[in-house]
Design a protein around this nucleic acid. Structure first.
Length: 356
DNA sequence: AAACCGGGGTG
DNA sequence: CACCCAGGTTT
């Protein structure tokens, strides 16, 4: 078994561990750039268990990159709904169009070329280049940061420029260029299953005897991160207009900010409860002066807290009887065809079951 | 360099 | 509750 020059022990142990413990994932074994790219974008900052159903649905609906390229962005976002980080979906669509319409349906076969795809950064380019084309680029993801920072007991923060450069170099030194695709997947799999973030089972680890952090007792402090993420509180008041024929209105959210391209009900962002006049003005803004508001009822007594990574959304839903809604108004059944945030999808479900 | 971007799982 | 997840883009 060939291995890296500088740390053959580490490299061969990872590969041997992988031979025994690797999971049977749907995209594993494929060297088709489209399938590998799709899996990598979906799995960015996403657990395998959460992303796998999406991967299957995308590949079934879009068997080839041309199918994805000719679809509407709205359909792509709808299929992405619930997975989060929706810029991934918009970039996925844009990248597919680039491959299909500018590059003749063929993915770039170099690291630099792959980086030109929107949504493809250093990690994803290295993953595709190594898995599909056996190009000697080490992947450096969250798993790799953790495994290397522990094995070499590195206390340089991983989320800094110097840290990034240090771990890139380290990853390069321990890689096996002779089977780079397999090795990259092995290292990530090792991080995902063996060298886990909390309470790793070091007793069963094949590298325990040479692990720096284990010897130093610093396993729980690796990797070092400096990032401090403050959570912002926001107060949303969604007003769902309901016409005489139970039609409603959804608005496409623009940028910048969360949920770009997704649909939501007319929104007032303020802490205090909106007055009937404010709700009327909101509806007028979106529907024009021909629309009139009838009874307004508060749907949820206490604000529903929707938690994102960096924001807590304290949300109240209001139902507003309305007449003279514009042409764009939709029956609820059609509204469900549009891509919406999970918060809105859950509300629409509740309304359907309790109100009508 | 730092901020921003989702939703869900886990201890 | 804090942390993390097969990260990338924008400012």
């Amino acid at each position: 078994m060939q291995a890296s020059l500088k740390h053959p022990n580490f490299t061969s142990a990872i590969l041997e561990w992988y031979r025994i413990h690797q999971r049977d994932l749907p995209w594993r074994g494929s060297r088709d750039p489209y399938a590998v790219w799709l899996s990598e974008i979906i799995m960015q900052q996403t657990r395998v268990a959460q992303g796998t159903p999406y991967y299957r649905r995308f590949l079934e609906r879009f068997p080839e990159v041309s199918d994805l390229a000719t679809a509407s962005e709205e359909e792509v976002l709808k299929l992405w709904q619930g997975l989060g980080y929706y810029s991934r979906a918009r970039n996925l669509h844009a990248a597919a169009r680039k491959v299909a319409f500018e590059w003749g349906g063929k993915f770039p076969e170099s690291y630099k070329g792959l980086l030109e795809l929107p949504g493809v950064g250093p990690y994803t380019a290295a993953a595709i280049a190594s898995i599909c084309f056996e190009l000697p680029h080490p992947v450096v993801d969250g798993n790799v940061f953790r495994v290397l920072s522990r094995y070499f007991d590195v206390d340089i923060p991983v989320d800094t420029g110097p840290g990034r450069r240090h771990f890139d170099q380290l990853a390069r030194e321990v890689m096996d260029p002779g089977q780079i695709g397999r090795y990259n997947q092995a290292l990530m799999e090792f991080g995902a299953l063996q060298c886990v973030p909390a309470n790793p089972d070091c007793a069963s680890c094949p590298l325990v005897q040479s692990c720096g952090a284990h010897a130093a007792g610093t396993i729980g402090q690796r990797p070092v991160k400096q990032g401090k993420t403050r959570i912002r509180k926001r107060y949303f008041h969604y007003v769902m207009p309901i016409g005489p024929d139970l039609q409603t209105l959804l608005i496409r959210r623009g940028g910048p900010g969360i949920w770009q391209g997704l649909y939501e009900f007319p929104l007032l962002e303020q802490e205090a409860d909106p007055t009937p006049a404010e709700i009327g003005a909101l509806i007028t803004t979106h529907c024009g002066t021909r629309t009139t508001i009838g009874t307004i009822t508060r749907f949820n007594d206490a604000p529903r807290v929707h938690k994102l990574s960096h924001q807590h959304l304290y949300t109240t839903f209001w139902l507003a009887r309305a007449e003279g809604l514009p042409e764009g108004a939709l029956p609820l059944s059609e509204a469900e065809e549009l891509p919406v945030p999970v918060l809105i999808a859950e509300f629409m479900d509740t309304v359907k079951n309790s109100y009508f």
